[in-house]
């Protein structure tokens, strides 16, 4: 079975009913995606399927064959080492134990991909599937707003650069 994870094609031999989570972790050694509940209730296992956040603990691997999957290890792109969400997460000193944060970051990243000025209500809707036992919610909310600023700034910079080139 061929899996497209973080823009790399991986060939895996696995029971096709295996949840994507365990293939990512055990077969591919990408341990940033976490097991939390196994029933899609906590969001620790969140990855992107064609850009949309999904719960990998409930997704049989056969249903995502050949589709673009992104994990926490694959969101940093371009010239900066970290994604804007990750930068904001450090600036706001969000993680405590850190276990749920890959999932939080993947959900926040998906929100910001479609919405660069999320309201508190938007954040509530996008983030309420991700449980954090350390209670970092107030900081996650701040972090999303900060990440939006960083993304906005980098986009307007790109626009300016683009303009200059033209």
């Amino acid at each position: 079975m061929k899996l497209n994870i973080n823009n790399t094609i991986h060939e895996v031999v696995v029971n096709p009913a295996t949840p994507l989570l365990w293939v990512i972790r055990e077969q591919l050694g990408l341990n940033g995606t976490k097991f939390g509940c196994g029933i899609g209730q906590c969001g620790a296992c969140t990855v992107h399927l064609e850009g949309t956040p999904i719960r990998s603990c409930l997704t049989p691997v056969q249903t995502v064959e050949g589709k673009a999957i992104t994990t926490i290890e694959g969101i940093a792109t371009g010239t900066t080492k970290l994604h804007a969400v990750q930068i904001a997460w450090i600036e706001e000193q969000i993680p405590q134990c850190g276990y749920c944060q890959s999932g939080q970051i993947m959900s926040a990243h998906a929100l910001l991909t479609n919405n660069l000025s999320p309201t508190d209500k938007d954040i509530d809707e996008a983030m309420s599937g991700n449980i954090c036992r350390c209670g970092t919610y107030p900081r996650v909310r701040k972090g999303i707003k900060r990440a939006a600023e960083i993304l906005e700034a980098s986009l307007s910079k790109k626009d300016t650069d683009h303009g200059e080139m033209e």
Partner: peptide
Amino acid sequence: RFDIPSKVDGTANFGI
């Protein structure tokens, strides 16, 4: 905090 960078890029090593 020293532990935070590894907790935003998936590299932090938990028991699991």
